[in-house]
Simulated assay, not measured.
Amino acid sequence: MAPTATSETSAPHLTEHSITVAAPASAVYALVADVSAWPQVFGPTVHVEVLQDAPAEGGEQTLRIWAVANERVRTWTSRRILDPAARTITFRQLVPAAPVAAMGGEWRVEELEAGRTRVVLLHDYRAVDDDPAAEEQIERAVDRNSRAELAALKNAAELGDARDELHFTFSDSETVVGAAGDVYAFLDRADLWPERLPHVARLDLTEEEPGIQHMDMDTRSPDGSLHNTTSVRVCFEDRHMIVYKQLRVPVAMSGHTGRWVIESLGDGTVRATSWHTVTLDPEGVRSALGPEATLAEARALVRKALGTNSSTTLHHAKQFAEEARVGS
């Protein structure tokens, strides 16, 4: 539905997007309600933090969301009201990101016949100062992200129980006799990784604003081949944590997110941990590994490849921090 014309009272622009999903309404609603899964399910979503959670029977929830809109990472705080009985979730941005002056909407999950579901995603928005150029920019972002989110929701929901087999999380850790700030500094300065890490052949890093990084990286496999990935990172220096999402993933995956977490152990040491969450793409697995390849084989290969690179990075971060401690 096209946006309405702006009146003297600055009426919000309204949009509606919908899709039909071959999955039960309860399963579809659960995916929309579970924000912890959003970075894996929804392409534009980079990271979500729950500031106030809703009870199981529904109610109010407060979130902070980082997402890509018009090729930039935006962050905002939203309030959601979940109604599991009606299968609706209304949302309103409490702290919008410019050029958005106000943004809200609703998810409606409607049960159809034969186990199918219709999902309707509504938005209403206003631009700062009702600027026409900003309104057009917001409209493009809302349209692109709504279509992408609904398509991704359909894909995830229609996997059914198979999604559990495709989705997995793992971690690797190093204990460091050094300062958390030094470990964080090594991980934050990814622009220096080609000089510091043997598996990083090239890395272009841009930081459009403090703490928001875009990375375009070529990594070298043991056989000498190069693999390109692009990622967005959100860096929390005060918490010694970096979260990231790969925007371009290897062919065997449909999603890959991760985080670096540095925790003080209270005895002059810290634990640095690399977490990965991966969703495999069945067709991509067959394309990359052959038609007879199993998901178990793919999980093992992905675990080894990602874990080896993460462990190498952690080992060099450990050396950097421990040398800094000796030299201080």
Rank of each mutant, 00 (worst) to 15 (best):
T4Y: 12
S10A: 15
P12E: 08
A22R: 13
V41Y: 01
G43M: 12
T45G: 06
T45N: 07
E49H: 07
L63D: 02
V73R: 08
R79V: 09
R80G: 10
L82R: 07
L82K: 10
Q93H: 12
A102W: 04
M103L: 15
G105T: 03
W107N: 03
E110R: 09
E110P: 12
L112A: 09
L112G: 11
L112R: 08
E113M: 01
A114T: 10
R116M: 09
R118A: 10
R118G: 07
V119G: 08
L122E: 08
A127H: 03
A127T: 04
D129K: 05
E136I: 06
E136L: 11
I138K: 04
N145I: 02
A156P: 04
S171H: 14
D182F: 06
F186R: 01
L187N: 00
D188C: 13
W193M: 03
L197C: 09
L197T: 02
L205Y: 07
D216E: 00
T219R: 11
R220P: 02
D223T: 07
G224T: 01
T229S: 12
R233H: 11
V234W: 04
Y244T: 04
A252R: 03
A252V: 08
M253W: 06
R259D: 05
S264Y: 00
D267S: 05
A272N: 01
G284N: 02
V285T: 02
R286Y: 04
S287V: 08
P291W: 01
E292Q: 14
A293H: 05
A293N: 01
L295F: 00
A300W: 11
V302E: 07
L306M: 11
